[in-house]
């Protein structure tokens, strides 16, 4: 039934991988530019967020499309799931450490709300 499709599957997967790599590379470079251009630490966190989330997952998706059904696919899925769960955790750890160390954004719109840790942050 799907025999006539067979010659088209590989080129279609190639095109899909190309799209994933190009969009992923775009976001990767945009996130890195953001880490250079954005003015202070709190803004750079979001630039790093672009690198850590969409760019990474798109690259891994592109590699999954090229790997076929094998053990390589499973390893790639494991890497993707692992990065999906750990990257927000480490971002939160960096942000929380900087907050406790008393680093605040430049030109902030409003004063930070009082929290229980204010006296520690000094």
């Amino acid at each position: 039934m799907i025999d006539w499709l067979t010659p088209y599957i590989d080129p279609a997967l190639d095109v899909a991988s190309w799209i994933c790599f190009i969009i992923g590379g775009f976001y990767l470079i945009v996130g890195s530019i953001g880490m250079i251009r954005l003015p202070d630490f709190w803004a750079r966190l979001h630039g790093a967020g672009v690198v850590d989330t969409l760019a990474t997952e798109l690259f891994i998706l592109g590699m999954i499309l090229q790997s076929g059904w094998s053990i390589v696919t499973i390893k790639l899925v494991l890497i993707g799931v692992f990065l999906f769960f750990t990257s927000p955790t480490s971002t939160h750890a960096v942000a929380n450490a900087a907050w406790l160390a008393g680093i605040r954004p430049k030109n902030m719109k409003q004063q930070a709300p009082l929290t229980g840790n204010q006296e520690k942050s000094s």
Binding site: G49, A95, N96, W99
Partner: peptide, 14 residues
């Protein structure tokens, strides 16, 4: 908290 951090533009700080 992780979902908030995962969407760029918002980060859970405390």
């Amino acid at each position: 908290a992780n979902s908030i951090t995962l969407t760029p533009g918002t980060i859970t700080v405390e």
